[in-house]
Simulated assay, not measured.
Amino acid sequence: MTGFLEALGKKAAERWLAVLVLPGALWVATAWVAVRLGHRDALRPRVAGDRVTEWAKDAHSTGLVVAVLAAALLGSAAAGLAASGVGWIVRRAWMARGRRPPARWAVARRRRRWHRAAGRVDALVAEAVQAAGSAEEVAAGPEIADALARRDAIALETPGRPTWIGDRWRAAFIRVRRAYGLDLTIVWPRLWTVLPEQLRTDITTAQLACTSAATLTGWALLYGALAVLWWPAFPIGVTLLGTAVARARMATAALCELVETAADLYGPRLAEQLGSPASGPLTTALGDEISARLRKDPPIA
């Protein structure tokens, strides 16, 4: 047990150093450069270099050096915690329901885009059916496949969230509920216990990638804030923001696919563990029964 706790503490310390302190140290250094250069000398790094050289040449007491290093370390950790906190807020925003403006307006816009794309798919399918003379003889050509890809790029189901990430999660829940009758909100903690270790590891890795992408968004905002003092920080922040959004989408897509895979492959095992073995594929009737049982609702008098 002692060895396990030591290994766990070492791993936590390494993660704290890699995720918070080192990126924080880079941000603190950038902030120092922003203060020293300002807008006037924004593209003259020699000015900051000369200041460092002058400070290094002067004699400084050990206490001052230690204080500077401690301040840099504390500043780095504080910046890392700030980025992590902003990332948590960003994750909440990505999953917002969109019941109030301006999120509600974003939902309406996404729905309009999706319905236009879906209408294009329906029109192409209707043309193909008319040309073939029978729905059974229709082959999905490249034009229909491209239209489907455009529609699915907006959302896999009719949009109901203001963000692509929120809609991807919503689609995963809808698809599992439609296929198996399982309410993932209730079922997931129990389903997790019957998953094999490799699938759990893959899901955890994808989840950490989502968290990392959200934290990168926090760093993008922190770098963007430095643009008030030093304008080159603005393109840095924009680049980080674009990278964070792209990573978040890829990680979310992978995570949702893994969650659906868990329901596809191990839904019957969950039913068996709950004493309702499925004789074949999991049916929606059995899934509804499992979801209702796990809700533990009081009986209707």
Rank of each mutant, 00 (worst) to 15 (best):
W55P: 00
A131S: 12
V125S: 02
G38D: 02
P102C: 03
W105A: 15
R151K: 14
A135R: 12
E14Q: 08
R113N: 09
A155F: 08
R44V: 11
R112T: 14
A153K: 01
A71I: 07
A140L: 12
K57D: 10
A71K: 04
R120M: 06
L81Y: 10
A149G: 02
R113A: 15
G49L: 08
R92K: 14
W16N: 09
A96S: 15
R111K: 06
R100G: 01
A108H: 10
A70Q: 09
A59K: 11
S76E: 02
A29T: 12
L26C: 06
S61K: 05
R36P: 01
R120D: 14
H39V: 07
A96W: 09
E157Q: 14
W94M: 13
D50T: 13
L37C: 00
A153S: 09
R40K: 06
E137T: 13
A118H: 11
H60S: 05
L74W: 10
A83W: 04
L73D: 02
R113G: 06
L124P: 00
H60I: 04
A140V: 13
W94C: 07
A131E: 11
V35P: 00
V65R: 15
A70L: 15
D41S: 10
A78F: 13
V65N: 08
D50N: 14
W114S: 01
W16L: 15
A139K: 13
L148E: 14
A72F: 14
W88F: 12
